[in-house]
Amino acid sequence: MTFSTMLSTMADGMLKTGAIFFLTLIGSLPLGMIVALLRKSRFTLVRGIISVYISIMRGTPLMLQLLVWYFGPYYLFGMNIGNWRFPALIVGFVLNYAAYFAEIYRGGIESIPVGQYEAAEVLGYTKTQTFMRIILPQVMKIIMPSITNEVITLVKDTSLAFTLAYQEVFSLAKQISASQTSFMPFVIAGVFYFVANYVVEIAMNRIEKSMDYYK
């Protein structure tokens, strides 16, 4: 196999890695916020369910969760899981990352002084307005470093998709390495993850900088 064939084969895997990465963020960033808000729900039952959900997501390996999501429907309900591989992967990633993001959001929300809520309430802001206009922008600034950490972890975690034999860059690296008895695919994968994270870092730095206009 020529180097360029290797690269172009793996480029396909990079696109798939990118798909996992972006779909996970698109799903888990908002879902994490919903989870964080539900965690503060008035209803004990809701709070209980959410806190169990968060402990399971954080307390078990993501690889295991992916297997459960993929094979669960068959073992529990005898369903045909033919086209379920990629959806299961995304569900697994989104729910796992939402739990982590939820905890980050919660920390951020709790760090906003109560005076901010009171000032908004006295000025007549509705609960939604208070959250969207006053609280959330401040939370975002506070949590951005933690979010950056998670996003970087996510780039690397996408490789866990090999568990479900999804042909992302790491699975391909393993396969090509096996067939070519070469380490080069792993080097390519390593460079890819490094560059991807470098881009993530630059992007996140920009976002953090854009929030630097106040203290």
Binding site: G59, T60, W69, G72, F77, G78, N80, W84, V91
Partner: peptide, 26 residues
């Protein structure tokens, strides 16, 4: 209890997520 809840929550989510494709099992 945790394990049971894990299976329960996941199965509920799965049940709603892929209900559509369950018809052609056999």
């Amino acid at each position: 209890i945790l394990a049971l809840l894990l299976v329960l929550t996941m199965s509920i989510a799965v049940f709603t997520a892929c209900g559509g494709s369950s018809s052609d099992t056999e």
